[in-house]
Design a protein around this nucleic acid. Structure first.
Lengths: 329, 329
DNA sequence: TTGTAAGCGTTATCAG
DNA sequence: CTGATAACGCTTACAA
């Protein structure tokens, strides 16, 4: 494998000159540049980034930490991140945490070890204080799901307002008994969505009936169970707001199994506008997040931090949108 | 940020000794080791891997190249890869190619640049000859979708046999007119599946009716169109085999829209056993691939290649399984 | 068992 | 405009 030294010898110049050509230093004579470039071609030389990285003490790699890869939701966000990053010459890598703090810490290690220049975190499990401390030393930003109160740059949507809007829409449809199916793990987003849900009820003078709130996991299976359970309440809901599309799918299935016609007998709203919500039967009313934009913004915030770790933390909430489909009416 | 030098000074030993402790060299005296470890703790030292990597000329990073992140199919495979890799002290990173040759080449660059030690390729778009040439120099293995004839290690399923089995099952159910919805891009897998499909028909003395073969893309939308188109044929199919679950979803929807009852009037088989196939309505008969195992095997093959780039290429086909559900009967 | 010092492949400073 | 050379942080002969 050819090194910069080989190129230098081949081109009869110093390694410094080769390095300059490699880095587009304007003060190389055009002819010299040509000679060097020919040598590079002839030797099939490709710079060893291990050397460069050590010298520059940076890799131009950024890491995106996802809780799982099996969630359609992230794909557009990643695309946004990549677009922005590539523009600035950064490479994007993805790591999967399985929501395991240890795996998260392993990846933080990559930052300490200088193998990546920054991290965009989705759904961090690390404690707030740790996160804040790390954020002072390393470029880290949070995206979408986040730890409330951690002092880091952050881009997300206004989850409370989004839930408020969804609930308000159901209320305006005439519903008086609205169920909520949410996560039993206390994610910031689910907490905020529950708040928004309750606030809408209160604001429209409807009672908050805890019997109609069901805590469970993010899977369709859980959605099915939850729906069936809610139907057994003294006053069963005539509409259900779920905090994810995957839950909504299960909910609809459960309702169907109980002989309910979704969108007619009972309304359902999901969250995230993942592709399946457009394709299930019925199609599912849901909240859309500006995912591409979110990715781009997150990358921008991170690049800022990489440039200047002491730059002020920013909190950005992007606008959401209620997508009305067949599952409500 | 503390370096190995700082630790050495702090512990009053040489950097060599610190390095030995870091690498668990058995010939350091226990007391010395302790002193060094205390120094490491006190300084909060964490080795800069850029230095180590340069010196060792390896990173212990492997890269998994996916065509897209929005396919549920990959998640279990990645898990398998990670399990195996972690066991051997390797880190797994994921890159997304969007099926773009340039992006693929960018990532190959990481290999030339020594930033990753090897690559596991899903759905490479690079030409066979290029791939073969690269495979001689760098550790690269193919997984699941692959370039036929490229001389690289490879783990997948026997796609032809799988399609044969699915078709045979439909034939044994009594179907005489079976449709095939497959990809119009010629992936190896779709080519092989088409072959298996035709071979089953032939072997059971059924005519191969090209009118019942529909070429399209991998999306549900395309599946819907395809299904509707097939229903307009002179002799419409009484069963449809699709080469992916996402297509199958669309197909089922299209059939429903035409008033057909899937699993009763007409049967549908998908491919990949992704989570939605278990959760759609009806649940979808499909071919299951041993994804976890596939990931583990792929990682093993890659690690072999990393150890010895000249080790013989292996081709491994793992067993598939027909999962019978409501969409056929 | 430990220390000295060379070297991995770059970039950047400084002198010319 | 170009060259010599130190330095980045680490590992590993080789010597002691």
């Amino acid at each position: 494998m050819a090194t910069i030294k080989d190129v230098a010898q081949h081109a009869k110049v110093s390694v410094a000159t080769v390095s300059r050509v490699l880095n587009n230093d304007p003060k190389v004579r055009a002819e010299t540049k040509e000679v060097v470039e020919r040598a590079i071609d002839e030797l099939g030389y490709s710079p060893n980034l291990l050397g460069r990285n050590l010298r520059r003490s940076s890799t131009h790699n950024i890491l995106v930490l996802l809780p799982t890869i099996s969630n359609q939701f992230y794909s557009a966000i990643i695309k946004g991140i990549r677009e922005e990053a590539t523009l600035k010459g950064y490479n994007v890598m993805i790591g999967i945490t399985d929501l395991d703090v240890n795996i998260e810490m392993n990846h933080i290690q990559l930052l300490e070890n200088k193998l990546v220049d920054g991290i965009i975190f989705f759904t961090p499990q690390i404690a707030k204080s740790t996160l804040t401390r790390l954020g002072k030393v390393y470029p880290i930003v949070q995206c979408s799901e986040y730890v409330e109160g951690a002092k880091l740059s952050l881009v997300s949507i206004d989850n409370k307002q989004a839930a408020f809007d969804a609930t308000k829409y159901l209320i305006e449809l005439g519903h008086k008994h609205i169920g909520l199916i949410t996560s039993k793990k206390v994610y910031t987003s689910s907490k905020l969505r529950e708040e928004g849900f309750k606030e809408a009820l209160t604001q429209y003078q409807l009672p908050v009936n805890e019997e109609l709130i069901y805590y469970t996991d993010y899977t369709p299976q859980c959605g099915t169970e939850a729906a069936k359970a809610l139907l057994t309440r003294k006053t069963p809901p005539t509409a259900i707001f779920t905090i994810s599309d995957s839950l909504a799918i299960g909910v609809i299935r459960g309702l169907k199994e109980c002989g309910k016609k979704v969108g007619v007998d009972i309304d359902v709203i999901g969250f995230d506008n993942t592709f399946i919500s457009k394709f299930y039967e019925p199609t599912i009313t849901t909240i859309s997040q500006p995912r591409l934009e979110m990715g781009k913004k997150a990358a921008k915030l991170l690049l800022n931090k990489i440039q200047n770790i002491d730059s002020a933390n920013e909190t950005i909430f992007l606008p959401h949108e209620l997508m009305i489909r067949q599952s409500t009416k």
